[in-house]
Nucleic acid binder design. Structure first.
Length: 111
DNA sequence: ATTTTGACGACGT
DNA sequence: GACGTCGCCAAAA
């Protein structure tokens, strides 16, 4: 293990802190980490999250419009959506309903 | 070493 | 408001 994974580790750390029934966006995490415009790195980190020993609730992380863009990276076809719905989040056609209500902003709530 | 791509986002048209 | 382009940075080809 290297400490150079600082950025990625932070991403995982924040992702794990997402409360139940809430979701956040890649950009929000990136901004919280100071990366701001490197939302892609957060996405890449998530892809690598499977390598982490601790599980990361990547299903609670979607893009800024609440679209389940990464659902293809999960097992099955709609596992991600089911997980979200299991938390009380309404998802229709890969789109989270009431996204602004379930959105969790680490910059404000986590601090 | 160079090019392409990607779980995104902001801005311009 | 839909669509296109650019920026960001890292990994894979």
């Amino acid at each position: 293990m290297k400490n150079s994974d600082n950025f990625f580790e932070k991403v995982y750390d924040v992702a794990r802190k997402i409360p139940f029934g809430r979701v956040t966006s890649y950009g929000a995490i990136a901004k919280y980490l100071g990366a701001a415009r490197s939302a892609r790195m957060v996405g890449w980190a998530m892809n690598n999250s499977h390598n982490q020993e601790l599980e990361v609730p990547a299903h609670r992380v979607v893009n800024r419009i609440g679209l389940l863009t990464g659902k293809h990276h999960f097992q099955g076809t709609n596992l991600m959506q089911q997980l979200l719905e299991n938390e009380g989040i309404v998802v229709v056609d890969n789109q989270i309903q009431d996204f602004d209500k379930v959105f969790w902003n680490p910059s404000e709530e986590l601090r």
